[in-house]
Simulated scan of single mutants.
Amino acid sequence: MHRWTDLRQVPADLGPSVVTIGNFDGVHRGHRSVLTRMVRSARALGGSAVAVTFHPHPAQVHRPGETPELITGLADRLDLLAATGLDAVLLIDYTLEFAQLLPEEFVRSYLVEGLQARTVVVGRDVRFGRDNAGDLATMIRLGEDHGFDVEVIEDIHGPQDASRRWSSTWVRELLAAGDVAGAADILGRPHRVRGTVVHGDARGRDLGYPTANLGQDMRGTVPADGVYAGWLRRPGLPDGLPDGYLPVAISIGTNPTFDEVQRRVEAYVLDRTDLDLYDEEVVLELVARLRPTVRFDTVEDLVTQMAKDVARARDLLAPGPLVLGASEAD
């Protein structure tokens, strides 16, 4: 998949394209349903399937400090978009200056002249241009003026709640409640948190469970405090090498037994004490919540519970990551 950050990078001979616009936070199953349909339409047209997205998220520019944490960081968002079969993503640097473009200016410069759009795929609630003045009616009118079709995508609902459409907001609510399994139903995969492994206080090693501690530069929404079963992926290793995908028990919280105040995300690789992951970027995929975070009266009680947590995680993860939905396929 081509990744363009400027219209000048788009090939002049791109040819006709099928284009959609969105933030695609989480790249959940609703997003992927739209994107895979786009890819099929582009193939039938003999053109390219292109998604237009933004970084940073527009809400972070217009309402800094008031926006929710993004479900996925930029690297994971682009990887997940690529997995849908798109030919290219145009990643627009979202600034207050860009936000001043009139709807007509945005469509003409980016969709018509820049990407040679033959079809533009949008939802009924699409908004674009200065002050979000452009809507579906605007897009249809501009399509008539500039010679592209507008395909309207209806809301996509999941089987677990037919009254509610799949959405990034719903995923955030589930993660805030610690329901990573429910979030995975909407995402179509385990939720991811990415970060660099840093040195901790080595308490886990002293207790017999050495952990990989993620630094405070983590990307991706950190779910509610608790203990989780999941997978640790090492994207820096070449595909096919051993130890690239490892089962883990993940602790999220402040370690109340030791009266700590800093919230941490740390992962114990099941039955392994020989790994050196320091300074390595890893991805944690959270499959199931085992229990909430609790304070134990003694360290011995904590260690006993940790052994139970590891045993549960081992049983849960035994089928392997593909069975549990780590595949990008729906």
Rank of each mutant, 00 (worst) to 15 (best):
I21S: 01
G30W: 11
E266T: 09
L174W: 12
T84Y: 02
R29K: 07
G226P: 03
P64N: 03
V19A: 03
G47R: 06
R77L: 10
E173G: 04
L74M: 05
P238M: 05
L90D: 15
P256N: 01
R219V: 01
T298G: 07
L290D: 04
L90T: 04
A176S: 05
G114H: 03
M1S: 11
E260A: 15
V39C: 03
G47A: 00
R219K: 11
P16M: 10
E97C: 03
R3A: 12
V126L: 00
V112E: 15
A329D: 10
A137Q: 09
G26W: 01
D93H: 05
L90C: 08
L270S: 11
R263K: 13
Y268G: 14
T84L: 14
L302M: 04
V265T: 11
D185G: 02
L101D: 08
E97A: 07
D6C: 14
S168Q: 04
E154A: 13
A329I: 08
T221H: 07
N132M: 13
G143L: 10
A137E: 02
M218P: 02
E144S: 15
V303Y: 00
D13N: 12
T119Y: 10
V283Y: 03
R291C: 13
V261M: 05
A82L: 13
R63A: 07
R194Q: 14
L14A: 00
K308I: 07
V227E: 01
G143E: 06
A311H: 09
A318G: 02
L142P: 12
W4N: 15
R264Q: 14
A137L: 07
